[in-house]
Nucleic acid binder design. Structure first.
Length: 457
DNA sequence: GCAGGGGAAAGCTGTCTGAG
DNA sequence: CTCAGACAGCTTTCCCCTGC
């Protein structure tokens, strides 16, 4: 509404609006009974005041297009609430919904709580500055309550050492686009204020950017050095086994942490870790999630052959101990977590493991880029350096190889299972990190496995 | 030890594009 | 017309930190 001044006063009762100085039409002191009528009026008003077209093409209708029939946009906070609710309904991961909520929180700081349809490009420019400099926790910490976008950005400049990384801004950009696009699809707004905003280009030279990090043989030996590893791990099954499994499968930490006893399978005499999502019997009839396991995507689903060094280290003995103790999960002491508000599972078994492993690594003097994920990077890097083809590595790691060729991908992934297994086994046999794994003794975790009071579903 | 927020990166999928 | 590759859009993961 470039050449129109608009003031909307929100009182307890009806909405009051003044629209003056329009090109052709002006209104003063119009009263609306609710926000929906205000928005309908606003759309109509914009159409009436639109510049006349310079020229019509032959195909264009002579009469004005009908007004869109969508539900008019409501206030930002209501639209955000509904948007997040929609995400939940469409079965997105609880964590994803939370992240979207965090990014969208900044929007509520635009002139209080305006109508979603009133957000314009200039607002986004302001918002960008806020997101770039927002002080930590400023949308949740009560100390910042009531502050405007400008004030917050100003405080951030004083408090923060540097602005948010470009990658983070890319995420905010993505989420804002997604939010306004969904309003556009619902015909609640006619165009997205994000349309003119290009995605920020990632800065390759950023000195704060984390470097890809893999582990050298030396470093692997330090991690599994019996003098430090054994005392740290000997009372916790997940500390003992998860790093070893991570090392020899390259699986994501979440995939390792969530495995069930039934996910370790023997097929035609060969043992596999089945990375998959199965129903938890206690959740089967619930209205919410029916599994505490998650998969990043379709191509994550796979069977990974269990490497010989793991078997030599007594993994199958541990498996039998679990079965003897009637355990259903590979690491019964890890919890999936539970959302306090909804009571739903957080489906996040990895947290405890990640924190404990990171603490161990820190104590060994590893820098902060050395984490569990480094096992995955290491496996991929080593196999790649040995000339193993990407698609064969992907069969182990569960990466998607869509860009190769869908036909070929389909063929390699399960169409001919024996061929898939053959390729996996050949690839895995080329991975020989020079570590000596500690050997499990039968009954080593008897105490932990029998004390069910500390087990989680 | 866990819930939950935050920063950053990884990675999946739909769509466009341009060469053959 | 086909299809690999690039790109854009979107979702999920990893891991840190804080506060209880």
């Amino acid at each position: 509404m470039s050449d129109t001044t608009k003031t909307a006063t929100r009182t307890q009762g009806p909405l009051l609006i003044e629209l003056v100085e329009g090109r052709n039409v002006s209104f003063k002191n119009v009263t609306f009974s609710d926000e929906a009528s205000f928005t309908r009026f606003e759309i109509l008003f914009r159409r009436l005041n639109r510049k006349p077209r310079q020229r019509r093409t032959a195909h264009e209708a002579r009469t004005a297009a009908p007004l869109p029939l969508g539900t008019p946009a409501r206030s930002i906070s209501i639209e955000i609430k509904d948007f997040l609710e929609d995400m939940r309904r469409s079965n997105l991961a609880p964590r994803s919904v939370a992240i979207y909520g965090q990014s969208l929180a900044a929007l509520k700081h635009l002139h209080g709580d305006t109508l979603a349809s009133a957000v314009e490009r200039d607002h986004i420019r302001q918002l960008w500055d806020l997101m770039l400099w927002a002080p930590k926790n400023c949308f949740t910490d009560p100390r910042y309550a009531g502050k405007s976008a400008e004030e917050l950005a100003h405080l951030g400049r004083l408090e923060r050492a540097r602005p948010a990384a470009t990658a983070t801004m890319v995420k905010h950009h993505t989420i804002l686009c997604r939010f306004f696009n969904s309003l556009k699809k619902a015909h609640a707004i006619s165009m997205s204020p994000m349309d003119g905003f290009k995605k920020p280009k990632l800065e390759l030279a950023n000195e704060h950017r984390k470097r890809p990090r893999w582990l050298t043989n030396d470093e692997l030996q330090r991690i599994f050095n019996p003098e430090t590893f054994t005392p740290w791990a000997k009372h916790h099954p997940h500390r003992w086994w998860a790093p070893m499994i991570g090392l020899y499968t390259g699986a994501r930490v979440g995939e390792v942490a969530q495995m069930k006893v039934s996910d370790v399978e023997c097929i035609n005499g060969r043992w596999f870790f089945a990375i998959r999502k199965t129903v938890d019997s206690d959740l089967a009839n619930s209205s919410g999630a029916i599994s505490r396991q998650t998969l990043k995507g379709k191509s994550s689903e796979r069977n990974i052959p269990i490497a010989q060094p793991l078997i030599d280290a007594g993994f199958l003995v541990y498996l039998q101990d679990l079965k003897d103790a009637n355990c259903t999960r590979l690491f019964p002491h890890l919890t999936a977590g539970r959302n306090k508000k909804t009571g739903q599972t957080n489906a996040l078994y990895s947290q405890g493991l990640v924190q404990q492993f990171r603490k161990y690594m820190k104590a060994l003097g590893f820098d902060r880029d050395c984490r569990f994920h480094a096992f995955r990077r290491t496996l991929v890097s080593v196999l790649s350096a040995k000339g193993v083809r990407d698609r064969n590595i992907a069969l182990l790691t569960g990466h998607a190889m869509r860009d190769q060729s869908q036909v070929i991908d389909h063929h390699y992934r399960g169409e001919v299972p024996e061929e898939t297994i053959r390729r996996q086994v050949i690839a895995l046999s080329k991975y020989r990190p020079s570590v000596v794994l500690p050997v499990y003794k039968k009954g080593q975790f008897d105490e932990q496995l029998k004390d069910k009071s500390r087990h989680h579903p």
